[in-house]
Amino acid sequence: MRRERGAPRPDWQRKVREQGLVYDAPGRGEGGVSRPYWDESVHYVFDMDEILSLEADVELLHSMCLEAVDHVVTTERYRDFALPEWCWEDVAKSWKRHDPHVYGRFDLRYDGSGPAKMLEYNADTPTTLLEASILQWYWLKDTHPDDDQWNSLHEQLVERWTRIKDLLPGSEVHFTWSGGDTSGEDHVTVGYLQETAAEAGLDTVGLAIEDLGWDVDLDRFVDLAESPISAVFKLYPWEWILGEDFGKHVVRSLPETLWIEPLWKTLLSNKALLAVLWEMYPGHPNLLPAYLRDPGLLTEYVRKPLLGREGANVDIVAPGTAEVSTGGVYGQEGFVYQLFDPLPQFDGFRPALGAWIVGDTAAGLGIRETVGLVTDDGAAFVPHRIPT
């Protein structure tokens, strides 16, 4: 694994914009200097054996996470995940029904010298999908056409929709985004996923989640044409849904209206999962020690809110390291304490590897890098390649 520099394509801005990158808030470089969010002036290079090792690690971690969900449901440990009590039984039903899931993204620490370490699992509303699937593939074809890339995302997404098509209540899926997202990232991500579903032969409808209606007479969700909705893809966190009155309708309408990602993923997208995994697999080489409520015997740790996003409300406590504390609106739900194992540095930047799962199979890699210890909304996305 190494970081290399290269000249950006002369018309790279036009290319990535035409490929859908309409959200381009600048990242932060050294000294706080702005850098492009999509930064192809640098990229990471991996040997194939490293990628094969990462693939194996990711699929193993995913299987361990599914075992953890089963453990939480069996032992009814929902309180550790700060889930409202009224939905506990429905989370269990969703898991036991095997409500279909599509994709997720592991955030990993990896430096090329040992096994990948799981930092968290974005299993409910992962983004940076377009960048990982489309943008960096075309970058590779334009700049290193003879090289390879860990990237079968598009093909696997189409295959996944094809596989779950018969598990859905109908042939139509409504793809929703939130009108509250002003960046356009959610809309683009949902639009791309809608394209993969259409390619798999599903009928698709796109609309803002705020435009979903509830028909009192039919006792079910309807769209703007007042047609009943049988399946909804959402890029709206389950914890937000469960915290709103709207969420009571969502849960009560299951499984007549199926939601993707499914309700049981409230347990995978919650950082309490990190502590449960460490309890179940103590000392596992792909895990970092993690505990609920207090740091236990850890003297160097990262305190993360159970439901935090984009590096918000994170505290790093480590002797000899300047204390880091980020702002935000999370934390009332509780925290998990994970061993502090800083991301490796390459030319002063710290890459976080985003390894994608589609269905239950490893499907690709996206890399975000930052100069700081916390991968936040100032991170830039950079491509990668595998020499052949």
Score class of each variant (00 low, 15 high):
Gly372Ile: 01
Val336Glu: 10
Ser133Gly: 02
Asp147Trp: 14
Leu207His: 03
Pro145Lys: 14
Asp80Tyr: 09
Asp147His: 15
Leu224Lys: 14
Gly372Ala: 00
Thr128Glu: 03
Lys304Ala: 14
Trp177Asp: 01
Asp148Gly: 05
Ala225Tyr: 12
Leu54Phe: 07
Leu153Val: 05
Lys93Gly: 08
Tyr138Ile: 01
Tyr138Glu: 12
Pro351Ala: 11
Gly27Gln: 03
Lys15Gln: 06
Val382Met: 11
Pro169Gly: 09
Trp356Ile: 03
Leu297Pro: 12
Ala7Val: 15
Leu21Gln: 12
Pro282Asp: 07
Val91Leu: 11
Ile51Tyr: 03
Phe381Leu: 11
Ile241Pro: 05
Asp80Thr: 02
Glu4Leu: 15
Ser133Tyr: 02
Val251Tyr: 13
Gln332Pro: 09
Val158Asp: 00
Val336Pro: 12
Pro100Lys: 09
Trp264Glu: 02
Trp86Asp: 08
Arg385His: 14
His174Ile: 08
Val22Lys: 08
Glu279Met: 12
Pro228Tyr: 12
Glu40Gly: 00
Gly170Trp: 10
Val336Ile: 11
Asp181Pro: 14
Val371His: 06
Ala7Ile: 14
Arg160Asp: 01
Asp146Met: 14
Thr196Gln: 06
Ser325Gly: 05
Val329Thr: 11
Tyr121Cys: 07
Glu76Arg: 15
Tyr337His: 13
Leu287Ile: 09
Val232Cys: 08
Glu210Thr: 01
Leu83Glu: 01
Asp111His: 11
Arg2Phe: 10
Ala197Gly: 05
Trp238Lys: 04
Val374Lys: 07
Thr321Met: 04
Leu263Tyr: 05
Glu55Tyr: 01
Trp95Ser: 06
Pro10Cys: 12
Leu307Gln: 08
His144Thr: 09
Trp139Ala: 07
Arg35Cys: 10
Pro237Glu: 10
Leu108Trp: 15
Gly27Val: 04
Tyr44Trp: 15
His43Lys: 07
Val336Asp: 12
Pro126Lys: 06
Asn122Asp: 13
Leu202Gly: 02
Asp142Leu: 15
Gln194Ser: 00
Gly213Asp: 07
Gly6Trp: 14
Ala198His: 02
Glu323Asp: 08
Gly296Asn: 09
Val69Gly: 02
Leu273Asp: 00
